[in-house]
């Protein structure tokens, strides 16, 4: 079995995996980082989004071995101690989550969206969330949250 080594949330992580082990399985099962979720099996829902070397990707559509040597950020690594990342804070302030299952992926995608477009319009936000499905909120408050999060990230 291949050994993979990567930096996850700033810490070195290493384990033996099968070639077929998905990155999301590695994170959840080997590292116990269960904040990254699996909501589908066709790469549609985005519950599994993490950042690889600063880019948001679906960790269910990537092998753990493909992340060898990469720097991975998951939802668990966002907050600074007890202090939430401004995007996390914005989701809370705007009731941008209900059951919480899609939330980690939604937040990770939103941060990447804002990184590439610091002042997105409502339409750009809706387009930018095309790869993340939420069944609870109707997106109204998620869009509001991303807008507020973008403003807060600008500081």
């Amino acid at each position: 079995m291949p050994t993979v080594e990567m930096t996850v949330n700033g810490k070195r992580a290493s384990a033996q995996v099968e070639g077929r082990t998905l990155l999301v399985q590695f994170l959840r099962e080997k590292l116990g980082l269960t904040g990254t979720h699996i909501g589908c099996d066709t790469s549609q829902c985005g519950a599994c989004v993490v950042h690889i070397d600063g880019r948001a990707v679906k960790s269910c559509t990537m092998l753990a071995v493909q992340a060898n040597g990469a720097s991975v950020m998951t939802i668990e690594g966002l907050a600074n101690g007890e202090k939430l990342h401004p995007m996390q804070e914005a989701f809370r302030d705007n009731h941008g989550l209900q059951c919480g299952f899609c939330t980690p992926g939604m937040v990770m995608t939103a941060i990447d969206l804002v990184k590439n477009n610091p002042a997105p319009s409502e339409e750009e936000i809706r387009h930018g969330l095309e790869g993340n499905i939420c069944r609870c909120t109707g997106y109204h408050n998620i869009v509001k949250a991303v807008k507020a999060g973008a403003a807060a990230m600008k500081g």
Binding site: S43, G46, V49, R55, A56, V57, K58, T61, M62, T109, D112, L113, G128, E130, G131, N132
Partner: peptide
């Protein structure tokens, strides 16, 4: 193409 996450990979 696809969505932003797909476009990143």
């Amino acid at each position: 193409i696809g969505d932003p996450l797909v476009r990143n990979r």
